[in-house]
């Protein structure tokens, strides 16, 4: 049973066809569904996230999904600074790091789709002044935006 309805799939397929420019890789740190459960390591939303992203990636040949198991690929997760799963890292024309921690449901799904498109194009709708300010930042900044599904 797909998470995305046929209508949503068709809509996204069209949006991706029109707006994606260059390839995007979605790196997903998760828990593999087949893995033996280890007490304390259950991931409540990994299964749903895995399926949702597989469905999204199937809607455009410009989107590649790269799945890693947090425990099996612990070293890679550490390099990526991933501590919680599911964790999504977008790779394309972005200069900085774009990540989603937790299932991107509700409004965050729209944010994820928009970010996939912007990472593919390397452009955002930020004002020229904002872009200039951001390009001249002296120190690294880690912005955490905490949300709940709505």
């Amino acid at each position: 049973m797909p998470i995305l309805s046929p209508a949503d799939q068709e809509y996204l397929r069209q949006v991706f066809a029109e707006r994606l420019r260059d390839p995007v890789t979605i790196v997903l740190f998760t828990q593999r569904v087949t893995q033996i459960r280890i007490p304390g390591y259950e991931c409540a939303t990994c299964r749903e996230t895995n399926q949702l992203l597989e469905e999204v990636a199937a809607l455009s040949d410009k989107i590649t999904l790269e799945m890693h198991d947090l425990l099996q690929d612990a070293e890679l997760a550490q390099q990526a600074g991933v501590e919680e799963i599911p964790a999504i890292i977008l790779k394309g024309h972005n200069k900085g790091t774009v990540r989603f921690i937790g299932v991107p449901a509700g409004y965050e799904f729209a944010t994820l789709i928009e970010d996939i498109i912007e990472v593919s194009r390397g452009t955002t709708e930020l004002s020229p002044l904002s872009r200039e300010t951001l390009a001249k930042l002296a120190q690294p900044v880690h912005i955490k935006v905490f949300v709940t599904p709505t």
Binding site: N94, K95, R99, G102, D115, L137, V141, H142, I143, K144
Partner: peptide, 18 residues
Amino acid sequence: MMAIESDKVTADVVEVSE
């Protein structure tokens, strides 16, 4: 968006109810 524009920026969207 900010993280797309600057290599200094890491942006995490955290679904905190999980």
